[in-house]
């Protein structure tokens, strides 16, 4: 996904003189050709994340469209007040693009895990959040985000599904079990494990790579009584949105995702997927526990 991001951003910088890129050393080498062509619009401030976001706010105030990129915890957690004040409070906007996701590099330990990034962005108002499930989804999502005027967060990961799904962020039904069936909403890279886990069960599986704004109209169209969220970041991040969308109906919600506990374990990303119950067998176990009383 990062390579696609680099190629697409390099093309955007060449095509649109309003576009600027702000870096804090991460990925700077990959953008060296773009920096050589556009030295005034490819700005590497060094390992200075507060300044990176402040600079983005200032660029936006002068009319540019900044793309801001680094590792997820440094972009969202370290510079959170800059997001709140240097962008939102100034009525300035930017496109943030992170790498690292919840546990792309777990051998690096807690400092490089960022399961709370989408929750933190969700405390802000009016942001679009894109969580691509495949490298092939990155370019159109990035182009859409940069072409818009509002702020967006694009969360890249080394984890992905086998195939890209297009679409505009509306819920896409991948497997339809008919009216009233439990609805599983899989976000981004969790889709393949979700479909594998539930292949023989009478549940509908829908996909989105745009959890904000959440497709609440599509959710209301598709949801029966039971809704299961599968998110690749903190479990429950989208619970409030689903609950509000279905407030006028009796419903049950199971929110799966990354746990809050610090595991203090290294290993691989696949290990962490399993430990958080987001692999196929873990998902199947959780979903069966939730829907079994209904199915029987």
């Amino acid at each position: 996904m990062r390579d696609t991001f680099v190629d697409t951003t390099t093309a955007l910088l060449a095509d649109d003189p309003r576009t600027a890129l702000v870096l804090a050393d991460i990925s700077a080498a990959l953008f060296a050709p773009a920096a050589a062509r556009h030295p005034d619009r490819v700005l590497n401030v060094g390992i200075r994340e507060q300044l990176m976001v402040g600079v983005a706010g200032g660029l936006a105030l002068t009319g540019l469209r900044p793309i801001v990129h680094t590792y997820a915890p440094f972009l969202v957690e370290r510079a959170y007040e800059q997001l709140k004040l240097d962008l939102d409070h100034q009525d300035a906007s930017a496109v943030l693009v992170s790498v690292g996701a919840s546990y792309d590099r777990p051998e690096a330990g807690r400092t490089h895990l960022s399961p709370a990034d989408v929750s933190l962005i969700d405390t802000l108002h009016g942001w679009t959040v894109h969580v691509p499930g495949h490298p092939g989804e990155v370019a159109p999502l990035l182009r859409t985000a940069v072409a818009a005027e509002t702020s967006a967060y694009l969360r890249l990961s080394v984890l992905s599904n086998d195939r890209p799904l297009g679409g505009d962020g509306a819920l896409q039904v991948v497997r339809d079990a008919g009216p009233g069936a439990p609805l599983v909403v899989a976000v981004g890279p969790t889709l393949d494990a979700s479909t594998a886990a539930l292949a023989d069960l009478p549940v509908t599986v829908a996909y989105t790579n745009r959890p904000r704004p959440f497709d609440t109209a599509g959710l209301r169209d598709r949801a029966g009584t039971d809704v299961i969220l599968v998110e690749p970041y903190l479990a429950g991040t989208s619970s409030r949105v689903v609950s509000a969308a279905l407030a006028d109906r009796p419903h049950r919600l199971l929110a799966l995702g990354v746990g809050r506990e610090e595991l203090r374990r290294y290993g691989s990303a696949d290990d962490h997927t399993r430990w958080h119950g987001l692999d196929a067998s873990g998902l199947r176990r959780s979903v069966l526990d939730f829907v079994s009383p209904v199915l029987h």
């Binding site: 600027a20 005034d40 402040g54 600079v55 706010g57 105030l61 009319g63 540019l64 007040e81 240097d86």
Partner: peptide, 18 residues
């Protein structure tokens, strides 16, 4: 406190880039 100078650096860069 501590937000104006970063915004100022970005504004100066944005003006220069244009």
């Amino acid at each position: 406190l501590g937000h104006g100078l970063g915004l100022g650096v970005g504004s100066a860069l944005g003006l220069r880039a244009q």
